[in-house]
Amino acid sequence: MTNLTVEAIELTRLYGGREAVSNVSFNLTQGQVLGFLGPNGAGKSTTMKMLTGNLAPSAGSVKICGIDMIENPKEAKALIGYLPEMRPLYKEFTVDEYLTIAARLHRVASRNIKKAVETAKERCGLTHMSKRLIENLSNGYQQRVGIAQAIIHNPMVVILDEPTVGLDPIQIRDIRTLIREIGTDHSVILSTHILPEVEMVCDHVQIIDKGKLVFNGGIDVLKRQRVGNKLLIGFNNAPAPADLLQIAGVSEAETLENNMMRVRFAENTTPHESIVQAAVKNGWGLYQIAPDQTSLEDVFVQLTYQDAAAVETPVA
Rank of each mutant, 00 (worst) to 15 (best):
M86E: 12
P88D: 12
L89Y: 08
Y90V: 13
F93I: 10
Y98E: 09
Y98K: 08
L99V: 14
L99R: 09
L99E: 05
T100C: 09
I101P: 01
A102M: 14
A103N: 09
R104P: 02
L105Y: 07
R111G: 09
N112A: 15
N112M: 15
I113Y: 02
E118W: 03
E118Q: 10
T119P: 02
K121G: 01
R123K: 15
C124H: 03
C124K: 04
T127F: 09
L137V: 10
S138I: 13
S138M: 07
N139I: 12
Q142T: 07
Q143H: 13
V145Q: 03
Q149T: 08
A150T: 05
I152S: 02
I152C: 04
P155L: 04
M156Y: 05
V157R: 03
V157Y: 02
I159Y: 00
E162G: 11
T164G: 03
V165W: 01
G166S: 11
L167H: 03
D168K: 13
D168A: 10
Q171G: 06
R173E: 11
I175E: 00
I175T: 03
T177I: 12
E181G: 06
H186L: 06
H186Q: 12
L190Y: 01
L190N: 02
S191V: 07
T192I: 05
L195S: 06
P196S: 11
E197T: 10
E199R: 01
M200D: 06
C202A: 15
H204Y: 15
Q206E: 11
Q206W: 04
Q206M: 15
Q206T: 10
D209V: 01
G211A: 10
K212A: 05
L213S: 04
